[in-house]
Design a protein around this nucleic acid. Sequence first.
DNA 1: CGACGGGTTGATTGTCCTCAAAGCCTGTGG
DNA 2: CCACAGGCTTTGAGGACAATCAACCCGTCG
Lengths: 222, 222
Amino acid sequence: MFAHGNARPANVPSILGGLTATPSSFAISEFHYRRGTEIYGEKEPAEYVYQIVSGAVRSYKLLSDGRRQIGAFHLVGDIFGLENAETHRFTAEAIVDTTVRLTKRMSLERVAHADSALAHNLLVMTTSNLQHAEDHMLLLGRKTALERVAAFLLEMDRRLTGVGVVALPMCRRDIADYLGLTLETVSRALSKLHAYGALNFLGSNQREIMLVDRDQLAALDT
Amino acid sequence: MFAHGNARPANVPSILGGLTATPSSFAISEFHYRRGTEIYGEKEPAEYVYQIVSGAVRSYKLLSDGRRQIGAFHLVGDIFGLENAETHRFTAEAIVDTTVRLTKRMSLERVAHADSALAHNLLVMTTSNLQHAEDHMLLLGRKTALERVAAFLLEMDRRLTGVGVVALPMCRRDIADYLGLTLETVSRALSKLHAYGALNFLGSNQREIMLVDRDQLAALDT
DNA sequence: CGACGGGTTGATTGTCCTCAAAGCCTGTGG
DNA sequence: CCACAGGCTTTGAGGACAATCAACCCGTCG
């Protein structure tokens, strides 16, 4: 079908369960999205919380003329769509065929009052998202193309937990829109890193990347 | 002394009080920082939470070679330094002479368990920071210089609540490091907006800006 | 097979950065 | 009181990095 390496057998932590009301009152169900399909849109009411069982998702904002900024990629095990406002602030789309577990979102107020441990979890996750966004602002505002791509590879390496090989689920355009670049610039940066001996391409479609010299990448990440 | 227009009489909401332990156990004190002085550094342990009584503060990250990304400006009434990790993720500096109220931070765990309304407040503030960062990622990743400056002026207009005049407390370099530009580019963009008739300069130091045509600015903000 | 999506690479353009100079204001010290 | 230094801003000239436009290759799928 489609070579996206993160069909990791679902030893997915069951964090999501903690975000529902008592397990008896709301069921957790699985849902499947085909690649390219929208899961929810920006400004739509936030009704569910999602956790990825397999696949990958992109969250993005659009400008009126179509320019796109991807704020985050969600990979296996990640929770997304967790707003505490009434509406989503991003559009979420399946990058590849994706299975999610979803559960009806409780209103923030009820969550916070119902269970303090749960409220704590909510805060930890929000803070984690905030931290990622803060780091990404530095990348988008001040790093060069090569530095951005190196940082991206290291992030994916860390999060995909591959055995030395990063199997990217997303295309060059997605990477570009995540890094504030164009797809050509991303491609050129990858070629340059290949020429430097920092990485090797494995798959036929250039999405499987072996990080040969992590130190060199880390040095570029500054 | 120094013309920074936000010496707004402190009808500062007392949100900060809610973040302390019981009012009896921890005192809230005021503190003064001279312009340019550091309030706390990145990676330092987070011991206090701050609220601005008068003045303004910049929060930034640095790359090893000195490139700087300002993540946020904090204005009168704003709370900052509120980490729930053990350490600060930004360096905070007074932009102008600044008075803050500060209070000893409670550990996140204790806050969350002690008072659910308080935990809720904490989450709301963190989410508000997250939302700002998300919007700023779009700006940094995908907007042109002119669009960034227009967006910046509208943000400051909204937050400084001036009577038609935005009295910026920060210099061009700070604006540039907030918008991912150079100070020259910021200056040129402002000159262009002036030529377009979107704004007028008032003060001798070019920091007081009257927004003449907000619609034009909003159109640029896309 | 041929169309299509995805990726790479080349040539050229353009936006923004860099380097530089000048003006203005403020504050300081003779 | 005035001269001068330093910080901040603007503006210009030139250059660089990334964007744009375009061609081509490859693998997949109808």
